[in-house]
Structure formats: structure tokens, C-alpha cells
Write a protein that binds this DNA or RNA. Structure first.
Lengths: 255, 255
DNA sequence: CAGTGGTCTAGACCACCGC
DNA sequence: CGGTGGTCTAGACCACTGG
């Protein structure tokens, strides 16, 4: 080894750049990203101030700011003027409702209540293993979940969770679970959901699905197939949500 | 007037900032935005280089770069390394297809062909006048349009266009129109479509709609209600697109 | 090769927040 | 008030693009 490590936190050396084809701020962003992924900087808390980071990495303030801007646009950090730079907390949940407009007696947009209809452990099929990045024959936890507003069933969900990771959910009492899963993932399993991809499509309800949603067999439904990712950008949840197609409403921005 | 105008293009003066509560780069961005809206800088062409802008506005390079970054994130400008900074051309069109997966004989994603079914001039109703920012009783052009792939009808559209602006389309031969409307708006009417909002929902086809799409009455359909905006961010097109719900497929990013 | 945007520096001062 | 991020400067040098 030629380069000598400095006393700084994750030192890239001072007068040389161990990066091959990367910009310095790109390298810094990668370095700081890994400090988040490895748990040195934890979600919800502040990271060291810019000035300190600049000094410890041996770069100018502006360079650190560029690196931080990258992580902000990645959604990993959040800056608050006069206060500090914070690691973003995970997704709050209730994000499924943005696809639907359900009538409520009151005006308040309360999060729907949630009931687990079934929970079983089984082997992942090929598609699931592929999407979750699991080896063939890995086991998963499969949940069926009904979400209701004012005791009116409105969303039917099927979730697939990789099992070593979500083991804590395989045994606990499902009637005591939170209405929002993502904060619970974080609390119980240490899994932070950071982003998701929702694929929207259309179908008709099977007899069983219709019964659970209190609709008729063959009723049109909107289907949301979600892949949710953790901080390290690995898919850790597959979810299929069904709801009345006539309650579906979503606005997409173009360009 | 105390401040003396410099020789620069849209001079903000040198040592003072005529802005009330705004940052300097925010003011610069607004100034440059108006140079685009007023047609001094035209879509598709390069604006003056940063160094020249910095000198003519009497600010540092970094400040100009911040202002440019704002306009880039607004989608008004596009930067190309080693080449220049360009005013973005309008939306290309064919963007409706991103909501649908239509089977084609070949694999190629060609733009669907387009046929105008009807064209009439009438008074805008309240909703239309409101959305388009028109006075009550203004007139609009209403078009019905069928889009087909491989001679197979797939999308049925109804468009509402404000009339003083799109007068050139009210008389011309519709059989000679382009398949893509937005480039034609720009060429024929000087209207640049810059962004759009698409509201998605589901419904069932009326008898007339079904006939035009070669489907059955009551067949489930996806509805895309679009509001399209020009560079000045004024709504200049309302469009409702209907297509087979079973061909609907769209992916949304969460956070 | 000349001209463009991209990176980086080492400062200064300002605006906001919480105590 | 002290500490944070936000704005701004006036340079230097690098990397890409095109003729």
C-alpha cells in the first residue's frame, strides 16, 4: 500500500484521489452513503456539519456540498436550514391511498385500519426469488391483509417477505400489529423502506377476492404491484394490492 | 430611479440587488426564464455561454450556474457538456403510449397513426373555461381523434383547444395532419407544450365509444385526463383519452 | 485546437434555528 | 447568542465536443 491513511473518518487521503474515473464529490457521496448503510449515521439523526466533514475529508466546503446534494437527490439525506443535515427516515406508509379516492363519512384522511387474514411460510417461486434477490428454494412469509375505512373493506393485499430478514414477523401476534407496516418493519426487523416502484394495471376480481372486498365476482379492480426497497436499494417486499377500479384515481406528471 | 442601467441584456445593475426577498440567482433565473418566454431564446437553440452571461449580468460564474441549475430542474434548459446550454424543445408526443401495452405484430414501438373523426367549434363550458383560464363564453375547438396501431383502433381521444390560439387548426385539412399533435402545435400555432398532468381513472365504454374502438358497450376502459401546459405554464390543451383497461399498465415511482 | 460546461478551491458574509 | 446551512465571489484547472 502506497497511500497512507489519515486520521480522518473514512479518509481518501489528501493530495491524491484514489478514485479511478470518478469525480471527487462522487467518491465522497459514495463514502458517506456507506456510512449510512453501515449504520454509522442512523435515520432521523443529524450527520456532522459540512465544515467538519470538509475538514475531515480534506476537501473544500463546496465539494462536500456537492456530495451532500447528490445524497439529497437520492433521498438519503435531508437538509434543514439552520439546523443540520439529517438521514431521512423511511417511508411513512399509507402511500397506497394515493391511488384511490374512497368516500369517508367524515372529511379526515385517516389511515385505513388493517387486519391480517392469513400468514404462512413457504418456498419462494422463481419470480419471487428473482425479484427479492434470493437463492432458489429460499423461504418467504406470505401475508394476506385487508384494509378498511370506517369498517368498510376497501383494499386487499398480498405480501411476500424474505424470511431470514422478517423472521420476527413470522411468530408474533398479528392482531397486535400496527396499521402501517413500514414503521413496524423498521421497529421490529430493523428494515428501513426507502423507496418503492408501483406497477398499475387492471383486472377483475376472483370469487374469493370479491367476497373479501364485499364486491361481486368479476367486478373491475385496479391492481398495484409494488416492489419496495431498503436503504441499500435491495428489494425486500413484494406487495399486490387490489381495490375497486371505480375508486381508482391517480395523477401522473409528464416531463 | 437611482440604479443606472448597464449595457447588459437584462441588467440587474451591478452592486445592488433590486430583488426584495429573493436570492440573486433566483432573480437571475426569473430574468432568464422571461427571455425564453418572450422568445428571445428559442427552443432547441443554445443560449450564451456561462462566462458571457456572468459578465453581462455582473455576477460570479457560480451564481449564474445556480440560476441555470434552477431552470434545468424546471425543465426549461438542458446542458450538454462541451457543447452549450440549450432551451428545451417541447414534448415530443406519443407520451400516451406509456400508459398502455398494446400488442403489435412486430416488436417495434411505432407511434400510432391518427385520424380525426370530428371537429367543431363551440363555446367552452364552465369547467373548460376554468381549466384553460378563459373568460366565460370563450370559444374552443373540440376534436375527436382515433389512434390505431396496425390498423387496429386502440385509443379514442377528445381534445379541447382554446380558440384564438389554435385558430390555424380550425380550418386546415385534418386528413393532412401529423400523427403527433404537439410538434404540429409548435409548427402551425407556435405553441410549445412543455409539461402535462395526467389523471388516471377507470370507466366503462358507452355504446358510441365502444363502436369506435371496436369493443363492446360497457367494456372496461382506462381514462387519461390530460392538462397540457405551455412554456409560460398556462394550460392550453385538455384531452381525454380512452383505451382498453386490460391494456393499461403504468409504473409509478414512490419517493 | 478553441470553446463549452464540469470540478474544485478558499475564503466571506448572510439567513435561519434553537437555546 | 453560537452553530447550522445558504449565498456569493474570483479565480484555477479539467473534460468533453466540434470543426
Amino acid at each position: 500500500m502506497i497511500s497512507q491513511q489519515k486520521t480522518s473518518a473514512a479518509s481518501p487521503g489528501r493530495s491524491q484521489q484514489p478514485e479511478p474515473g470518478q469525480s471527487r464529490y462522487g467518491w465522497l457521496a459514495a463514502a458517506m452513503r456507506s456510512r449510512i448503510l453501515q449504520g454509522e449515521w442512523v435515520p432521523g439523526e443529524a450527520i456532522p456539519p459540512e465544515a467538519l466533514l470538509a475538514k475531515s475529508y480534506g476537501v473544500a466546503l463546496g465539494t462536500i456540498r456537492q456530495a451532500l446534494a447528490l445524497l439529497v437527490s437520492d433521498g438519503l439525506l435531508e437538509r434543514r436550514h439552520g439546523t443540520g443535515t439529517f438521514v431521512k427516515a423511511g417511508l411513512g406508509g399509507a402511500s397506497m391511498l394515493r391511488f384511490f379516492r374512497f368516500r369517508q363519512s367524515g372529511e379526515l384522511q385517516t389511515s385505513p385500519s388493517s387486519r391480517i387474514l392469513s400468514r404462512k411460510r413457504r418456498l419462494a417461486n422463481l419470480d419471487e426469488a428473482d425479484a427479492l434477490g434470493l437463492p432458489a428454494g429460499a423461504s418467504v412469509l406470505v401475508l394476506e391483509r385487508l384494509r378498511s375505512i370506517d369498517k368498510q373493506p376497501c383494499l386487499l393485499e398480498r405480501l411476500v417477505l424474505p424470511l431470514p430478514l422478517f423472521e420476527a414477523l413470522a411468530e408474533s401476534d398479528t392482531t397486535a400489529w400496527d396499521d402501517l407496516l413500514y414503521p413496524m418493519y423498521q421497529r421490529v426487523c430493523g428494515v428501513v423502506i426507502h423507496r418503492a416502484e408501483d406497477q398499475l394495471s387492471f383486472d377483475q376480481l376472483t370469487q374469493q377476492q370479491a367476497r373479501r372486498l364485499a364486491l361481486e365476482t368479476g367486478h373491475p379492480c385496479a391492481r398495484v404491484q409494488r416492489r419496495a426497497f431498503d436503504l441499500a436499494n435491495r428489494c425486500v417486499e413484494l406487495r399486490t394490492t387490489l381495490g375497486d377500479a371505480f375508486a381508482f384515481e391517480y395523477t401522473a406528471q409528464v416531463r
